[in-house]
């Protein structure tokens, strides 16, 4: 796993300071979206090879949620931006 994450608020920090939540591209369905949509939202995850956007929480730093884009194969980190930035999560 990527070992240095460039937090936009704190600078480069080791992964030990972060908590990973998982896929940042999953959106909560409407309350009446039906069983299948909710089952997929709660349980089903892709396991992509290559670029992947995830939510990372800087638990031992600024305590902000970030969207980190990294490569699951090479561990390269492409970007880390605050999750509150408009457009990062729909």
């Amino acid at each position: 796993m990527a070992s240095l994450i460039a937090c936009p608020h704190c600078g480069p920090r080791p992964k030990e300071e972060f908590t990973v939540r998982g896929d940042a591209g999953i959106n909560r369905p409407a309350p009446d979206a039906g069983k299948d949509a909710w089952y997929a939202y709660v349980y089903l995850r892709d396991n992509p090879r290559g670029r992947h956007k995830e939510h990372w929480h800087h638990t031992s730093g600024c305590r902000r949620w970030l969207v980190v884009e990294r490569d699951t194969m090479t561990h390269a980190v492409y970007s880390a931006v605050d999750a509150a930035v408009t457009g990062e999560t729909v």
Partner: peptide, 10 residues
Amino acid sequence: STMTLIGHIT
């Protein structure tokens, strides 16, 4: 100033 881990302590 910065918040960080020192060993395992925040």
